[in-house]
Nucleic acid binder design. Structure first.
Lengths: 228, 228
DNA sequence: CACGCATATATTGGATCCAATATCCACGCA
DNA sequence: TGCGTGGATATTGGATCCAATATATGCGTG
């Protein structure tokens, strides 16, 4: 049973931003899943969600289908949808994808990055140092990475990267809550930015891969390595 | 207006394979889009599709939402959905993604490939030589690649790879129809398989990247390079 | 007392209905 | 004659209703 109060905060706040109820429900539920408000395995009763969002079951159904295509929820015919579980195996999967995509995006973007981009990235690192909330923290981390990739000029690639950065957030929140923030990650952010500023594509890509892999290893160890 | 006869072939053939109408419609429409039966830009009228599939508008709507999340169709609120357009820019986008993901999948899979896997890959190459139909051709090409990646043991990564192999098919069909099949591609398949058999991961990954990039360059040139 | 079967209930899947919005066309006016 | 406005029409978005299926409960029987 989902506590209605947990969701009411997310709901109705940015309702008017969306043109259709389906859009609204999809965005709110994605946010809820990625932020951990809806934990892995949580059953998603359509009627319950519909009343929580103040709509009928139909926008909920369409939103659930979209989230299914993004692997955030899983459907079982006639049995309902549940929030996709997190696991060590899935974390490794996401890590492998990030380690492949992010250097590719960076390599395309790097030559076109401007001084303003570097300044923004620097500022985001500083904000991360001061941010205690894990949720905002993940958001800042995502924006830092995306700032460096943004000039790649490949919308599809960037959408994939952002999607998997967000997916990784679900896991990083775990790590953050359990171990506190790892200062090594900030060192890696600085190193990455320095390599970018120097225009050294190979070093920058290496830094990204190391960064992703390090976080991934930490996580796999933390999650107990139940699966490869 | 969609010619109903174009779709009727796809419809009702494997209808019983699916447990829900939504699953069925989603699979059929994805197939239709990827195979080119529904070309880019084609308007997707819900009522029309519903009668074509012999269902109500609802499964169609849910299927369209799933396809939207996979970037195969585009929605405009209150204006309807259209099949996602193909373009030189999008082709380059897909090429960049493939060039990043496929070597990663291959590197994970390569050490675990068996003699049977190599034999299957070899057979698929041979079948490609004899296949005149572009549709079946793409299918064989996809299976060849996926055979080499299958042992990666990363379901999420493999799903992404397969998804973008399929997306690339939409473009390769173009190339095939206009230029005929390029024998160079088969040479590259042989070289790739040889490197895999030799267990040379670096060479194999290099071969994949070259293969993807070569096809991509051909395509970009053919599509006129309207966009980067 | 355990197991299997039948029935009851809850929940999803699918169809139909109504409302909201966009497009199209005609008409009037400058 | 060209442009803008207003209404008619088509199509989507959302709500409600019905059917199909899965789970749970309880009964009977071995």
């Amino acid at each position: 049973m989902i506590d209605p109060l947990d969701l009411t905060a997310l709901i109705e706040r940015n309702r008017p931003r969306f043109r259709t109820a389906t859009e609204f429900v999809e965005a709110a539920m994605r946010e809820a899943i990625l932020s951990g408000a809806l934990p892995g395995g949580a059953p998603l009763r359509q009627e319950e969600l519909a009343t929580a969002f103040g709509v009928s079951r139909m926008p909920v159904r369409e939103a659930l289908r979209q989230l299914e295509a993004r692997a955030l929820v899983e459907f079982n015919p006639h049995r309902g949808a549940v929030v996709a579980e997190i696991s060590a195996g899935d974390s490794a999967d996401i890590g492998a994808i990030r380690a492949a995509l992010e250097p590719a995006a960076l390599r395309l973007s790097l030559p076109r990055l401007s001084a303003a981009d570097f300044a923004l990235a620097e500022e985001l690192i500083a904000e991360m140092d001061a941010e205690p909330d894990p949720g905002r923290m993940g958001e800042l981390n995502r924006r830092f990475h995306m700032t460096l990739y943004a000039r790649a000029g490949r919308p599809r690639l960037l959408a994939l990267v952002e999607q998997h950065l967000a997916a990784a957030d679900r896991y990083l929140r775990f790590q953050f809550a359990a171990l506190g923030y790892h200062p090594r990650s900030q060192d890696e952010h600085h190193a990455l930015l320095a390599a970018c500023r120097a225009g050294d594509a190979d070093a920058a890509c290496g830094a990204v891969v190391d960064h992703v892999m390090a976080a991934e290893e930490q996580l796999t160890a933390f999650l107990g390595g139940r699966r490869g």
